[in-house]
Simulated scan of single mutants.
Amino acid sequence: MQSPVALIPQLAGHIIAAGGKRLRPLLTLASAKICGYEGDRHVGLAACVEFIHTATLLHDDVVDGSDLRRGLETANSLWGNKASVLVGDFLFSRAFQLMVADGSLKVLKILSDASAIIAEGEVHQLLTSNDTETGESDYLEVIEAKTAALFAAACRVGAVVAERSEEEELALERFGKGLGIAFQLVDDVLDYSAEQQALGKTVGDDFRDGKITLPIVLAYRRGDETERAFWRRCLEDMDQREDDLPHAMELLNKRDCLSDSLKRASDYASDAREAMSMFPDGPVKQTLIDALEFSVARAY
């Protein structure tokens, strides 16, 4: 992150110091280890994966107009939108420098393809925002691009640096994709979770932004006309009142939308677990399975 332009390390340092799960770089490190890799290329690539993710967070917070992330003020609320976008661009560029320094065209292709897919997913989400007619397939396309693509790439490059077979590369990619989709589905449920509220975490950000996530897709499809009118007023017209979020949470529970979304997350997690069956049991494999189980069972 170092740069002679002081604002860059200052702003980038703020979002990185804010914490987070560091799940994506862990996937790169563990995937290389499970393939028996003993060099150090995976470390630079893990940093590269985290920089791509961090750049998208900086840009997302600007697009969403978010003031808080992980309970702290966002970079855009402290330094403004222009600085956040530009430092996000710097981190993307730094990620590409790290890829080039690695020297593998295959790694460069996997991670640059993932970066392009993430951007497409963000634009696709923009098009589905505030549209209650959005279907399940559109929603899944968005999260496969926006979230799962980087998880999948993070895993696959571990096998590439270890020079393992394409079969193992694809198995790790499948694991990452299943984990990424499950992770995002759980994220979307947590935004309406009473448990999340009890932990003192912010709930309702997606609701306030008019984002159409799987719980909403299910609720709109299963609701009666009165309920659909409520969703249209809140998410399409963005006419939200003080008691609308509690009512939204009530409707989502009444129509089993949160529990069914979590079941869907468990299905993707099961597929991811199955993809790992070709690898030997041991502490590294257990770490990956633990990350998968945490992603589905987490309350934050």
Rank of each mutant, 00 (worst) to 15 (best):
Leu111Glu: 06
Phe151Lys: 01
Val62Pro: 05
Thr226His: 12
Gly135Pro: 00
Arg273Asp: 14
Ala95Ile: 06
Ser193Asn: 01
Arg221Gly: 04
His59Met: 04
Pro215His: 02
Ile52Ser: 00
Thr134Ile: 01
Val63Ile: 15
Asp40Ala: 12
Glu274Leu: 14
Met249Ala: 02
Leu288Phe: 09
Asp271Asn: 11
Tyr220Val: 15
Asp267Lys: 11
Phe151Asp: 07
Asp138His: 11
Asp243Met: 13
Leu150Met: 00
Cys234Gln: 04
Ala149Glu: 05
Glu133Pro: 03
Ala145Lys: 15
Val157Glu: 00
Phe175Pro: 03
Pro25Ser: 00
Asp89Arg: 02
Ala12Asp: 04
Met276Asn: 05
Glu293Cys: 03
Gly158Gln: 01
Ile8Gly: 06
Pro4Ile: 00
Leu91Met: 14
Ala229Arg: 12
Phe175Gly: 04
Glu173Cys: 12
Phe151Ala: 02
Ala18Trp: 02
Arg208Thr: 11
Ser3Cys: 12
Tyr192Ala: 12
Tyr37Pro: 07
Asp187Met: 10
Glu169Tyr: 06
Val49Ala: 06
Gly71Cys: 02
Asp188Gly: 06
Gln10Met: 12
Ala95Gln: 05
Asn76Cys: 12
Ser93Phe: 11
Asp61Gly: 03
Arg264Lys: 15
Ala219Ser: 09
Glu169Val: 03
Pro4Met: 01
Ser259Thr: 15
Ser266Pro: 09
Glu120Ile: 08
Ser165Tyr: 02
Gln184Tyr: 09
Ala101Asn: 11
Asp102Val: 06
Leu127Val: 12
Glu250Tyr: 11
Ser115Arg: 02
Ser31Asn: 01
Lys285Gly: 11
Gly176His: 01
Leu150Thr: 05
Asn76Arg: 12
Arg233Leu: 02
Glu122Ala: 03
Glu250Thr: 11
Ser3His: 08
Val189Lys: 09
Asp89Glu: 08
Thr28Ser: 07
Asn76Val: 09
Glu227Arg: 04
Val142Lys: 08
Gly158Ser: 04
Ala153Pro: 13
Leu126Ser: 13
Gly223Met: 05
Glu242Lys: 14
Glu133Val: 09
Arg273His: 15
Leu185Pro: 00
Gly180Glu: 01
Ser3Asn: 10
Ala119Trp: 01
Ser295Gln: 07
